[in-house]
Design a protein around this nucleic acid. Structure first.
Length: 683
RNA sequence: GGCACUGUAGCUCAGCGGUUAGAGCGGUGGCUUCAUAAGCCAUAGGUCCUCGGUUCAAGUCCGAGCAGUGCUACCA
């Protein structure tokens, strides 16, 4: 007996617009849900905006509006973007709802009652200007171990030391730039170890996770002899979220309430339809399927099964985990115009093209998926236009109706009907790419048939009218099969095919028997081919949207408009005295040797000359930006000469070189103008 | 360094113990001109990363190594 399916996609954060990376997940889920429905299964597709947390709070403050205003606007934008890509949710809710609050309060009561909560006083940095405690990522300062500046509050990016944010030297809030002060606060922790067996059993359940992800969870968290780390689920005010009932002034961490948004959104939907949420989350008749990206696997594979079990709900039947999107083989890049918002795509291109291209790339694994814009153009044009649409386009207008008995076709239709089983299995498993390959193979065979039957030749000979009708009836029925198989990906192909052949496509089994005798309506173009110029226009528009990235090319100084992002990302530090500054001895130095360090991904070993026979060795974390050390040799750099030496696993580092930029590829060494001599002091 | 994944035609990938290793795109040559310059046929192109092992038989299983990717560690 078929089970009902409750399907969710991850809840997009209300702090930004949907982009083509998000769409991987919502399209993957949409295709799967549509497939299941074609098979006659009852499926609910539930989503919502994820609304809580510090980031939303700060965005609202910056905009000078209440959070609710921000949320309403973003929810509307999200839903419009999804709708325009043909992503059809049964309900799109919000985690900032009374329903969700009730679910969160309920689980909280259960956690308390069962003794799964620990409370510990945590000394944490507090931003008096913003009036908020600072999560690790909102504090920057000097690493207590190695003295590196500009480090986040949890670990040093330079020496790798991990520490508490309170250990940072000269900390400052990235929210306001204020100097944080120490304040004590009680935090609540869920003792995750209490749920170890539940989690391990669920992870081991056949089919719950892809084997690769199963290994990941086991190797990363379920390590023998190591208890699961307790999970800090509370945040002191100010925080945008639900207040904890028995800890006034404290709020639930966003990742506690966000997943309950799946259930709350279901409940809100059920309230409209007269159904009950229990009908979808409890008992034998239903399976829960979550679609998520690999970045949030931890929350869904550890915390969530534990919470669900305690709440008395079903554990997920399967968590479908996908990888990230790359564009042209690289991470999406604002400056290259490959960070493309859903809306920007829609302004230039047909959403069905992306639906098909993504579908052709989906697998059941968590590997990244590449959108090669050239391949995108070629594949959509060749497959959808050249093979599928063309099949109808070249046969539909020759005859007024389909033959009353299905003609002999050499077994083509039957073979394609049989192939439906394999295609269905591929869809079901999430191997949509395989499904697309099989469908296109069928399209190839259908076009071969048309080629041999040559209806355009038969048309010229009135004596062959019966043959003409037969040929077209076969071709159009093969086309219809393709439309059925493609229906989860391209629902409007199926719809248009229904109109063309006078019989709607409503079920997967419509591909099992040919249509006969129906009148053929006028053929209308189903889809246009992709014009590469439009793809380029979309990329150009995305580039233009990217802040602070003027087009390369000749620039005059007054034409440069530098964006505010860099400063906003890291506000100015508190005022210091000249004496403070004078303590830092900056020197011009020449790189006399630069080499890679074995076993270090980010480190280069630099030998700096201060003139004469004075040299210093520095291990600098700049390799990501300067992968080849050779060109560095000979150039002048700015060197912090009186920084305390630091023993590192590679050797002794005697200072540091100064560079700008946030990290990774964006690191820019400073250089004095020509004429400066190694050893000269910089002041 | 740790854990994992990947390495097959120019590109994207399929094949995961069994005949001469496949598809699509791209290349080349031809045919067709019904169709949104679509389609069909033919053809070139491969040490299936390397080295060992198991087996009657290995891209396909095992071991080691190399390379790439992701997470993680190192990163004054």
């Amino acid at each position: 007996m078929p089970k009902r399916l409750l399907v969710t996609a991850a809840l997009p954060y209300a702090n930004g617009h949907i982009h083509i990376g998000h769409l991987v997940e919502y399209l993957m889920t949409d295709v799967w849900v549509r497939y299941q429905r074609l098979q006659g299964r009852q499926a609910a597709y539930i989503c919502a905006d994820d609304t809580h947390g510090t980031a939303i709070m700060m965005a609202a403050r910056k905009a000078g509006v209440p959070e609710s205003a921000l949320l309403a606007e973003m929810s509307a934008a999200h839903q419009q973007d999804f709708a325009d890509f043909g992503i059809r949710f049964d309900h799109y809710g919000s985690t900032d709802s009374a329903t969700n609050k009730a679910f969160v309060y309920e689980i909280w009561a259960k956690l308390r009652a069962a003794g799964h909560i620990d409370q510990k006083t945590v000394t944490q940095l507090y931003d008096p200007t913003a009036g908020a405690f600072l999560a690790d990522r909102f504090v920057k300062g000097i690493c207590p171990k190695c003295g590196a500046p500009d480090q986040y509050g949890d670990s040093c990016d330079k020496c790798g030391a991990t520490y508490e944010a309170t250990d940072l030297k000269q900390p400052k809030s990235t929210l306001s730039g204020a100097v944080p002060e120490l304040r004590e606060a009680v935090h609540a922790f869920v003792k995750l170890e209490d749920f170890r067996t539940i989690i391990a059993d669920w992870v081991g359940r056949d089919g719950a996770l892809h084997p690769d992800m199963q290994k990941w969870v086991r190797n990363t968290f379920l390590i023998e002899g190591e208890p699961l780390r307790s999970w800090d689920v509370s945040r002191p005010a100010a925080y945008f979220g639900f207040e904890i009932p028995d800890l006034p002034g404290n709020y639930f961490y966003v990742w506690l309430d966000a997943p309950f948004g799946y259930i709350a959104s279901t409940a809100d939907w059920c309230a409209k339809t007269g159904d009950t949420w229990q009908h979808w989350w409890q008992g034998d008749g239903v399976e829960v399927h979550h679609f998520i990206g690999k970045d949030i696997a931890k929350f869904h594979t550890l915390f969530w099964p534990a919470m669900l079990r305690l709440a008395g709900h079903n554990l997920p039947e399967k968590i479908h985990i996908h990888g990230f999107l790359t564009v042209n083989g690289e991470k999406m890049s604002k400056s290259k115009g490959t960070f493309i918002r859903a809306r920007t795509y829609l302004d230039h291109l047909d959403p069905r093209w992306l639906r098909y291209y993504y579908a052709a790339k989906f697998t059941d694994g968590a590997e990244d998926l590449d959108l090669s814009l050239d391949e995108f153009t070629a594949k959509v044009n060749a497959d959808l236009i050249g093979k599928v649409v063309n099949l109808a386009s070249r046969t539909a207008k020759f005859v007024p109706r389909l033959a009353t008995t299905y003609p002999e076709d050499g077994g083509l239709f039957t073979r394609a009907a049989t192939e439906g089983t394999a295609i269905a299995a591929a869809y079901d498993a999430g191997n949509t790419g395989e499904a697309m390959r099989r469908i296109m193979a069928l399209a190839d065979r259908a076009n071969e048939f048309v080629e041999k039957a040559a209806p355009w030749a038969l048309k010229k000979d009135p004596a062959k009218a019966a043959d003409l009708e037969a040929a077209c009836s076969v071709a159009l029925n093969l086309f219809r099969q393709l439309c059925v198989y493609l229906a989860p990906v391209l629902p409007d192909f199926a719809e248009e095919c229904g109109r063309l052949l006078g019989t709607p496509i409503t079920r997967w089994s419509d591909a099992q028997s040919p249509l006969t005798g129906t009148a053929i309506a006028e053929f209308k173009p189903l889809m246009n081919r992709i014009d590469p110029l439009k793809v380029q226009a979309m990329v150009d528009a995305s580039k233009a949207e990217a802040p602070g990235t003027p087009d390369p090319g000749p620039r005059t100084p007054d034409a440069v408009t530098d964006g505010p992002e860099a400063l906003a990302a890291e506000p100015l530090a508190p005022i210091i005295t000249f004496d403070d500054f004078a303590k830092v001895d900056l020197r011009v130095a020449r790189v006399v040797n630069a080499e890679e360090v074995p076993k270090a991904k980010k480190i280069l070993k630099l030998t700096l000359s201060l003139g004469g026979d004075q040299t210093r060795t520095v291990f600098a974390g700049i390799k990501t930006a300067y992968p080849d050390p050779k060109p560095l040799v000979g150039r002048l750099v700015v060197f912090v000469a009186n920084l305390a030496p630091r023993q590192m696993s590679f050797g002794l580092s005697e200072g540091m070189v100064i560079a700008a930029g946030p990290g990774d590829q964006d690191i820019y060494l400073l250089a004095p103008d020509s004429g400066a001599k190694p050893g000269q002091r910089i002041r």
